[in-house]
Design a protein around this nucleic acid. Structure first.
Lengths: 337, 337
DNA sequence: CTAGTTTTCGAAAACGTTTACGCTATTTAT
DNA sequence: ATAAATAGCGTAAACGTTTTCGAAAACTAG
């Protein structure tokens, strides 16, 4: 298939290539009549610019790099990330950008930064990676526009799910339902987990509730089987909790299974809550009480901030964007007042 | 950040740009000594080719377009597609390709084909779209290398989850467990559904089992609430089925809820089976009996076929790649023999 | 030692854009 | 009226590659 170029339009319109370019880019040194004439014939010839040629000349690709690597290599199948990314993608596309994944296991081994330069991305969004990976650090310290999600770096814009507020709301809610013996099966040791754990302790301390050490278990995200075992441990405790919080909805499902297998019912015998507000959490029975992270908003804000950074390079404003979560009141927490 | 170019290497090595290019691309008209010398200094200077410039000259971007639009606009959050795409992505990346989404709602409105040309993708994989969309047809009839997933077009390579075999295996299994009254809540009217439905009928007919009309309901994929209602209808039937098959695992979960809410137990009172073999289906209780679609293989084969097509343009061999599913024997089908 | 062959390299054009600059023709100011 | 400003368009260089072609140098054969 033949691609129509500026030259084709130029010869058809009997003007120079430069004039065509300027007409299409709406420069003001080309007459109104010719401009309109050029534009209409461009339209009817089905012209679209060659993005490679344009990128070569302008150093702008209208391509945004996406870096995401999680410990489990789940890639695109990571539920939370997939939702964030989907929203991110829709937002940047509305501004004419496309996205390119730079977390590649390329045959020619490039670092993340090298891959970013190779593809000439205009900016990069970083999410859910091992933020202390030297390659990630290299990217962070580069001169590329960067926005990070759920992790804070100096001199970089970060978009963060407000885990402190989320966990606080969840604890307040559970407390309001009369629970005082609250356990927490937490996720891997990340900054997200640290925030949630801290908020968990502080919120309960403020209420004057003590948390025995054996009520808090550090486990792993998205590991229902691990959560299953830890739930069993909690159930075996002499003074067992009346409510268990999980690191995420998947883990909570592992907990549900453990509780059911122990012959106990939810929320009759024991209450539970998840985190994330995933789709699945609302179609299982009992519907999970959980904190819905606003993935749609996180992706959208990250996209907007990154585009703004790209299009206003002098901007040096460092921002921390906190995105609120919201409580979904399911049927998994009993009122024991 | 300054990008090192061929010119830089050339001046450092005191050779011409052409020689550097040829050395790096391993042409055989440059001496072994200089070739090695150029390559090592290129390495230590941290050179990577500018993909835009290369694409401009060679008409090869090493970029593959991904077209995916489903009726629910779920995008990247579509579980089945996310798994297929993840595998596809990993496979093409191993060969040096990146992917670009061409299902964009771009501000400058381009058709899929126009967007593909704009980005200069070397080929396109099409999955799960409305295959009769005129824009999709335009793409199908273009001269771009194309591989489709789960739909067959004339003159195009297709990779297909073998729904006929999958449904057949499932029916055989359920039959072997003694079930004769088998209902099926099917998905939207697509070629996938047609294949499964046909296989459902034929497999049972071969066994001499009759299927009352009210046992087969056309519903929608991934709609647990819709499945919930249809399950209720089936349960109300005077001669109610002993086993219900669902279009997918999510719908099956809707069915589970309906059955539980009716005070019945699975698989004690009634058996069910899903389709997809999603992660979630294996962590809920009871573990779902389901057909696992080999998303990993589907993505991999689609990638391999597309790359082969791209790199061997004269190939005109039209292929239908059938990818087998496999039965996951959960705890949701009772043996009533 | 010459003629022919092969090896190794460079000059230059090209891919499709954008843009700085210069030129002409038209307008405005004086 | 002329001089100065401006509007409208074209020339040409540049972005970083790849590739054709030709030239020079090295080698081979006789």
């Amino acid at each position: 298939m033949y691609m129509v170029s500026l030259k084709d339009i130029a010869s058809r319109c009997k003007v120079s290539v430069a004039t065509v370019s300027k007409a299409l880019n709406d420069h003001n040194d080309v007459g109104a009549a010719t401009k309109e004439m050029i534009r209409s014939t461009a339209r009817e010839m089905g012209y679209f610019p060659n993005s490679s040629a344009r990128a070569l000349k302008t150093n702008r690709t209208y391509n945004i790099g996406v870096l995401f690597v999680d410990e489990a290599q789940s890639g695109l199948t990571h539920d939370y990330f997939a939702h964030v990314l989907d929203s991110f993608k829709k937002t940047v596309e509305a501004s004419g950008y496309d996205i390119t994944f730079i977390n590649s296991t390329h045959n020619k081994h490039m670092s993340y930064l090298e891959h970013s330069h190779y593809r000439g991305v205009d900016g990069v969004v970083i999410a859910c990676v091992d933020f202390y990976d030297p390659q990630v650090m290299e990217l962070i310290h580069s001169d590329l526009p960067v926005v990070t999600i759920d992790h804070v770096f100096d001199y970089r814009i970060a978009v963060l799910s407000d885990n402190i507020q989320g966990m606080h709301d969840l604890v307040e809610y559970v407390y309001s339902k009369g629970h005082r013996k609250i356990a927490y099966i937490a996720g891997d040791d990340t900054s997200v987990t640290k925030n949630r754990l801290g908020s968990f302790y502080r919120s309960l301390e403020k209420k004057g509730v003590e948390v025995p050490d054996e009520y808090v278990i550090q486990a792993s995200y998205r590991h229902p089987d691990m959560a299953y075992e830890h739930t069993q441990e909690l159930l075996k405790l002499p003074d067992r909790p009346t409510c268990i919080l999980y690191s995420d909805d998947y883990s909570a499902i592992g907990g549900i299974n453990a509780i059911n297998d122990a012959g106990l019912s939810i929320p009759g015998d024991i209450s539970i809550a998840g985190y994330d507000g995933s789709y699945i959490s609302q179609i299982i029975s009992p519907k999970l009480t959980t904190i819905k992270q606003d993935t749609q908003q996180i992706g959208k804000v990250a996209a907007e901030k990154l585009i703004h950074l790209i299009e206003n390079p002098k901007t040096t404003l460092i921002q921390r964007m906190l995105i609120n979560g919201s409580l979904i009141e399911g049927d998994s927490v009993a009122d024991i007042n």
